[in-house]
Design a protein around this nucleic acid. Structure first.
Lengths: 209, 209
DNA sequence: AAATTTCTTGTACGTTCGGTCAATCTTTTT
DNA sequence: AAAAAGATTGACCGAACGTACAAGAAATTT
């Protein structure tokens, strides 16, 4: 798909694109779609505005790439939710991975949240296809576990939503959590404790006996 | 605090202010702070832009009123979390109420989410005072329950976050949920099932035995 | 090394927006 | 009913934004 990046120019192009995309994720997260501007993104990567436009043409196209990226990262995080997995372990790992993503890539999550809150004006087609199919697959797996008596008969869809909501909360509401933590970032220890506690609460809700 | 609203003028003023506030909540939710404009809000209530400006002076002031309003509604929803309440019932009612608010007033929740995602540029002082005190009070109550052996020793703060995240998810991510529900609004039955399932998952995580 | 393609950058244009202001109309107070 | 206060509205302004464009610099291809 991508060119192998021979030559000085091609290599430099990829590098610049990546830098712009990273900055765009931050700026879209912090200011919202309308609030973000080419000017501010350009400033963050120390390039003239017109150069950023040259690489991505329109704000909409740049934004879409940012949104699709975070979705694909999340999709991978659920790879281990398979019919033959151990439910508690698979979901535990899924929660761990999503919380780790909330920690190291909070901006992508915020952009996604913003897009959904505003009724997906840009990526609605993505929701109707990729997201819908992917979600239904995961629900089938969980229902399969229930059929085989491996977990309590909970509502698979609402469980999935609870996991999404809780894990993404730590990305989207970072600022609130930080304020309630006396304006300090969560420490290493607090993150571990959070992972343990979230699994404790959610997994306890599904296990038998 | 408010004038008793005698006379035609005063009554009409209150009425107009309310209509504008309701429209502003919708518009801020749907377009974000930057994306929302006096023009669009004015259009929704069929008034000239300058009249809306006359009532609220600046966009910031109007926005702040909207944000404070939803916070106060949420605060009330937790009134029954008291030391002498039955934990499972009190938290169950809290979840029910918050889900009902997610259903009937999704816009306020979205505005709050947006504000927090963007690092509370307008209401940071609110977080530092009202929200922080209120949260610590609730955590004390839950820890009290744990001390008296009424629930499992879970992490009270993370439990609170899980409840917020999960309930508000049904407001903030309405559009995604609807898309995954074949583009249909959740039915009466589905809302009941959701309330049951969310309580099932979260409350099961705290109960003893 | 000449020709071609790709990248860089400053300028400029049309639009939208928040907010001001003054003129007019309506309600309340005296 | 005269005077004062409050409400309504259209016109207007300066700033910011998305993006089109042209002209030159650099890299690549021939």
């Amino acid at each position: 798909m991508n060119k192998p990046a021979t030559g000085i120019q091609a290599r430099h192009r990829e590098e610049t694109r990546e830098r712009i995309l990273a900055a765009a994720e931050r700026v879209f997260a912090e200011y919202g779609y309308e609030g973000a501007s080419f000017g501010r993104i350009a400033q963050e990567v120390n390039l003239p505005k017109s150069n950023v436009v040259y690489y991505f043409e329109t704000k909409k196209k740049l934004y879409r790439l940012v949104v699709e990226d975070i979705f694909n990262v999340w999709r991978q995080a659920a790879d281990n939710i398979q019919p033959d997995s151990d439910p508690e372990q698979a979901l535990g790992e899924y929660i761990d991975t999503k919380l780790e993503l909330a920690r190291v890539r909070p901006h992508g999550s915020k952009v996604w949240a913003n897009e959904i809150i505003q009724r997906a004006p840009i990526v609605q087609d993505y929701l109707e296809n990729e997201l819908r199919d992917w979600t239904n697959d995961r629900i089938s797996v969980i229902d399969g576990w229930i059929d085989r008596g491996m977990i309590r008969p909970i509502n698979a869809r609402n469980l999935l939503y609870a996991i999404w909501a809780t894990t993404q909360h730590y990305a989207d509401f970072t600022h609130q959590i930080q304020t309630l933590n006396d304006d300090k970032e969560l420490s290493e220890t607090q993150w571990s404790e959070t992972k343990r506690a979230v699994k404790d609460i959610l997994i306890n809700g599904i296990s038998k006996g």
